[in-house]
Each structure stands twice: as structure tokens, then as C-alpha cells.
Design a protein around this nucleic acid. Structure first.
Lengths: 154, 154
DNA sequence: GTATGACCTCAAGTAATCTTGAGGTCAACA
DNA sequence: TGTTGACCTCAAGATTACTTGAGGTCATAC
């Protein structure tokens, strides 16, 4: 990109990034960034040529979106979790902390689900799971708790 | 269901289940079960009325599918992981063990990804992540490793 | 002065994972 | 005998998360 190699040719302040730059730095596709903006997950301003300019603090949000994607958390959940973090200005330490903690809780839940499943699967490996008796994997706790019906329990 | 409450009315052996029974025991919707069968993730035989009859050991596979869904693992991955487990007969202890171990490894990877992200997010919470320096969350290792480009690293 | 590349919009397409609907069979129950 | 309920097929629709394509603007590079 010539305009970058030649420095601040267009007198663009260093803390505003083009969509291409954001894409390069976050790994998210340009089309994906536009899509996230449409969803209200991120925001940008426009320059005199109607091109998006992203404030630097937006990179953090985009990183979080990528992370959520990697572990299969729907974007809507992320939107909810970070609803209180402002889009139009760099979030304060406190705002960011609060949302981060909330999100960390979600991560923890997810990890614990996996850990539980790992343990259950280990049990199944141990017993061969051929008897299918008292197998937690085949008898998930949440289903049991939800409706009192014991799937797979005879 | 009258045929169940009144026992083995149609002389159906206990180890063959109707799609409705499988649905009730696994929590998967009938339509989802048909879909899984279409994908080749599960299999059934037909009775004289062309209705599906599922062998009991299929419940295990369906449980795994549900689990994969819960933690956001695509069905194709599951299909790959359990490709060597036979559909047409109850898998042997060894077959099941081997596949379970493979799948457990996938679970572990996923858990470790989440753990890493938790740690990184904790770091971000600690530092407020406002300086954005050396933040692993914003600088994911895999991206760095893949192409040598440092996203968000100035 | 034209070609290129980065950007724009808007609409349509894609993939995964199912669900819903239309139209039909068959056995059991009142 | 008629109606229900569980099952069947096949096609279309829904949702999420994007990508692709058509058609256009503008500044810089040759």
C-alpha cells in the first residue's frame, strides 16, 4: 500500500485505520468487517471520500469477535456481553473490565462444559461404554434436570 | 405412546428403537435424526412398514453428535473422528475406545484454546488492555505463527 | 491520460444445520 | 368406520455468518 509506505501522505492521524488496514491487522476479511458493522458489533466513521475509518480501539472488539468465532460462540452472545462497552469512543478501563469479566465467565462456562464432557468421555473409555449404564455422556445432566425424563436411562 | 405402554405389542425386540423413541431418549428432534442419517452420521434399518428401526448402540453416536453441537464442533469433524467406528453393528470395545480417544483429543484442544483465551483475557483485565502492548488476545499466536505478520503489533 | 487498487453499495449466493409443510401409509382405538 | 398418531418422502424455508458479484468513485502510479 503506497500511502502507508510513504508515510502520512493524506495527513491521516495514526489512530484511524482504513478497513484494509484493520483487516490486515485483525485477520478478519474486509467483507466480514462490513458485516460486523452492519450488525452493530463494531462502528466506524467516514472520511471525506465516504471511506470507513476505524478508531484504533475497535481492534480490540474485532479481536474478541474473532475469538468468539474460534470457539463457536454466536456473535449475538458477544453483542449482548459487550453491549455496555461504548462503540463511539475508547472504553474506559472500568467499562472494559466489566465486560471482559462477563465474557470471561462465559468462557469459563464453556470450558467447564468441555471439561465435564472430557471427564465423561474418559469414563466411557474406561468402561468401554458398552454397558451404557450410568453413562453421564449419554445421560446429560441438563436434559435430566430440565424435564425429569431420563433419556437412555432404563 | 400406546405401543410402548402396552409392552412389546408388535413383538419388536428391545434393542430396536423407533425414531420417536430415539428422539425421546436422546433429545434430538426427529427431523434432526433423519438429517443425521442423510449425512451418514448414523444409520438405521427399516421394518416391514418402511419405518426406521435404530439399533440401541446408535444412541451413543447420537449422544456424541449432541455433545459436539453443544460445544460448537461441526458435524463433519465428528464424522471424521468416528469414521472408523462401524455403523452397521455395535462397535467393539477397541473401536470405540480408539475413536473416543481421538475425540477426547479434540475436546482437549478446544479446552486449551479456551483456557489460553481465558488467561489472555485475564491479562487484559489486569492491564486494562488500554495500552494494547503485548496483548496476546489481540495478537493471537496462531496468526503470528502462520504468516509471520504481526497483527496489531506496531 | 489511462490503468490500477482501495474503497463504496446493494443484491444475491453459499454452507451448515436443521425445521416446516404438503401429501401419503398404516395400525390401533372409540 | 372413522379418526387419530406415528411414521414416510421430498421440497422449501430459516438462521448464522459470511462471500461474491455487479457496477461505481477516486487518487496515485506509469
Amino acid at each position: 500500500m503506497a500511502s502507508r509506505r510513504s508515510g502520512e501522505v493524506r495527513a491521516r492521524p495514526d489512530d484511524w485505520l482504513t478497513i484494509g488496514e484493520v483487516s490486515a491487522r485483525t485477520g478478519a476479511a474486509v467483507s466480514a468487517l462490513r458485516f460486523y458493522e452492519e450488525l452493530g458489533l463494531i462502528a466506524s466513521e467516514r472520511d471525506d471520500r465516504n471511506q470507513r475509518r476505524f478508531p484504533r480501539h475497535m481492534l480490540r472488539r474485532i479481536a474478541l469477535i474473532s475469538v468468539a468465532k474460534r470457539i463457536g460462540i454466536p456473535l449475538q452472545d458477544l453483542k449482548d456481553a459487550f453491549a455496555d462497552v461504548p462503540l463511539d469512543r475508547p472504553p474506559s478501563h472500568q467499562e472494559w473490565q466489566r465486560a471482559s469479566r462477563g465474557w470471561k465467565r462465559r468462557l469459563e462456562e464453556r470450558r467447564q462444559t468441555i471439561e465435564r464432557l472430557e471427564a465423561e468421555l474418559t469414563g466411557c473409555i474406561g468402561c468401554g461404554c458398552l454397558s451404557m449404564k450410568a453413562c453421564a455422556l449419554l445421560n446429560p445432566g441438563d436434559t435430566l434436570a430440565r424435564d425429569g425424563v431420563g433419556p437412555l436411562r432404563l
